[in-house]
């Protein structure tokens, strides 16, 4: 009884996959090339450009910085975002609706504007250290994703469950951790992944906030391309891809990626 999809539909679906996967195949292919310039299909097979990443100090340092930044910014954004999302959903009657709009605003404002205004206020104005400025920038960048995604999760949470726990003698703070949080875990994981990817891939905001001695991996890739045209950037891109996938895998293993199944 299953209807057979039309050939046109199959063709469109195939095209979508080609456009999604194609660039990845090209980048991975180019990173394996034995030539000293970027080319596809690769000529000869070699891992020398992967080795080259670690021979360049700037890459080594920025990989560490980017990872630190992504973990810290995501962590901070969750620390702020979870209580914010909870308050917005729990007490929505008392709070004006514009407040929830405020939390989407940073998504609507171009990141480059965020970067520039932070440069003026935080980096130059308050003269914070570069890493701190970057951390503030990235936290602000990913916070709206955290609030939105966790809010979506909390919106389907029945708060009478929380009241049931309290009536059974569980103090409100404990109830939040033992009852509310486990039931929005899927949202927290989704927020973590979104925030982490956003942070580790960010160029626009970081561009203004990096400075002497401290840079992020995407910025370093940009700087490298301006001077060299060797396959190193392809191999760095592949490395960045696998780092992201690795983090997803770890998050999935430790917290359970159940939200994809729901």
């Amino acid at each position: 009884m299953t209807t057979r999809p039309s050939p046109a539909l199959i063709a469109i679906a195939a095209l979508v996959y080609v456009f999604l996967v194609g660039p990845l195949v090209i980048v991975i292919g180019a990173s394996l090339s034995d030539t000293t310039y970027l080319t596809f299909p690769p000529q000869g097979l070699s891992l020398r450009w992967f080795e080259n990443i670690f021979e360049i100090t700037a890459f080594r340092r920025t990989i560490v910085t980017s990872l630190q930044l992504a973990f810290l910014a995501t962590g901070l954004a969750l620390l702020i975002g979870i209580p914010a999302a909870y308050a917005l959903n729990r007490y929505r009657i008392q709070l004006p609706s514009w407040l929830s709009t405020v939390f989407v605003l940073p998504i609507l404002v171009p990141e480059i504007v965020l970067g520039f205004s932070l440069l003026k206020s935080v980096a130059v104005g308050a003269s914070f250290p570069i890493f701190v400025s970057l951390l503030i920038g990235h936290t602000l960048l990913v916070l709206p994703y955290c609030v939105r995604v966790i809010s979506a999760s909390l919106a389907s949470f029945d708060f009478s469950i929380e009241e049931a726990a309290i009536s059974l003698g569980s103090p409100p703070a404990r109830t939040f951790f033992t009852i509310v949080l486990p039931n929005v875990r899927a949202g927290v994981i989704a927020a973590f992944i979104l925030a982490f990817i956003t942070s580790i891939n960010d160029v626009s905001t970081s561009l203004f906030l990096t400075g002497p001695g401290i840079s992020t991996l995407p910025i370093q890739i940009l700087a490298h391309v301006e001077q060299f045209f060797d396959p190193t950037i392809a191999s760095v891109s592949v490395l960045l891809m696998f780092l992201t996938v690795a983090v997803m895998a770890i998050v999935e293993r430790t917290l359970g990626l159940t939200f994809l199944a729901k």
Binding site: S160, I161, S167, G169
Partner: peptide
């Protein structure tokens, strides 16, 4: 008295069981 110290058994319309 705060709600968690009142020692009252409550049965809700939508059951409010802990799903996890």
């Amino acid at each position: 008295l705060p709600a968690h110290k009142r020692d009252i058994g409550l049965v809700f319309q939508n059951y409010a069981l802990f799903p996890h």
